[in-house]
Design a protein around this nucleic acid. Structure first.
Lengths: 155, 155
DNA sequence: CTCCTATAGTTTCATTTGCAACCAGCATAG
DNA sequence: CTATGCTGGTTGCAAATGAAACTATAGGAG
């Protein structure tokens, strides 16, 4: 039996992590420089922007898989900067509904084109079809792992 | 002009980070449970295993883009567990050459098949061609970003 | 009602991370 | 050879992270 070997370079989880770090650094530094936002804050803004009627922190955490502490801190910081507003949640006094303030909307509108431009730059060498396939693969990997987790964690 | 919008879900840097976190959690917990290794430690082992004549920490950091502190700590921990050995580097007394101990070799041989199995599981739904495409895209993204960095940091 | 358990969100604390200062050993210029 | 600056590696410290404890409200079950 031949000795099994593994070049780290060819190990996909490693490659994925390597590339993601590179992309993450690029994106994080762009947001930080241009808008003074951390990634977690940007994500909160983006999710809130998609739900004009308001979202709870819990929903944000669920959707993005960010820790609830992370969401809590990001939201607190955005509220302090008056980018986000907190309305009471009639159905449940424990939670609040987060919405963008006018200022938050304005910032969001300023970020979106920059974010899209950055995305285009990073993926500049690929065709739309390639990008679509890449995206589809990522989603399938998610599906495999999330199913697996559900199966592995029988309540 | 129509209002630009952006679903976070469709934003590729986000998707990439989401999936990578999922994969990373899976892999990290597998290594941790099965071998008591952290990701950084596993990477150091893998890189050292590829260079039987020994590598310096600096080279490891360069190759994996891990911080030199991370490499230093991972190496220290592996040496303490006698998985790694440190030989003097004749040409430069500041650095050492790291090699696997017999024990380290044995552990490496035990990990490799598990790592490959995990990789196969995560990518189970894809054909070899799809995987190759995916890998190639990751490498191209790296290339774009690393070139960009070089251009952006004129000495 | 009143208890009991469960959940949203915050706070605390311990751990992990990485920058920056540091301590060798190296390398070049005088 | 000896100053001066550079590089490999470690250490110290400050910031980021996340698990667990805590607070306040919900939502039953009796």
């Amino acid at each position: 039996m031949t000795k099994q070997s593994l070049r780290l370079d060819d190990f996909l989880p490693y490659r994925l992590s390597f590339t993601t770090n590179l992309v993450g650094e690029t994106v994080a530094s762009a947001y930080e420089q241009a808008f003074g936002l951390r990634i977690a804050e940007w994500r909160v803004i983006a999710v809130v922007a998609e739900s004009p009627q308001g979202v709870t922190q819990q929903a944000i955490g669920l959707k993005t898989r960010m820790d609830k502490v992370t969401v809590s801190r990001a939201a607190a910081s955005l509220i302090a900067r008056t980018l986000l507003e907190r309305r009471p949640h009639d159905a449940d006094q424990r939670s609040h509904l987060l919405t963008l303030s006018a200022e938050g909307e304005a910032l969001y509108s300023a970020i979106v084109p920059k974010a899209l431009a950055l995305e285009r730059q990073i993926f500049s060498r690929f065709s739309a079809a390639e990008i679509a396939r890449f995206d589809a693969m990522l989603r399938q990997i998610d599906a495999i792992l999330l199913e697996g987790a559900a199966a592995a964690a029988p309540s």
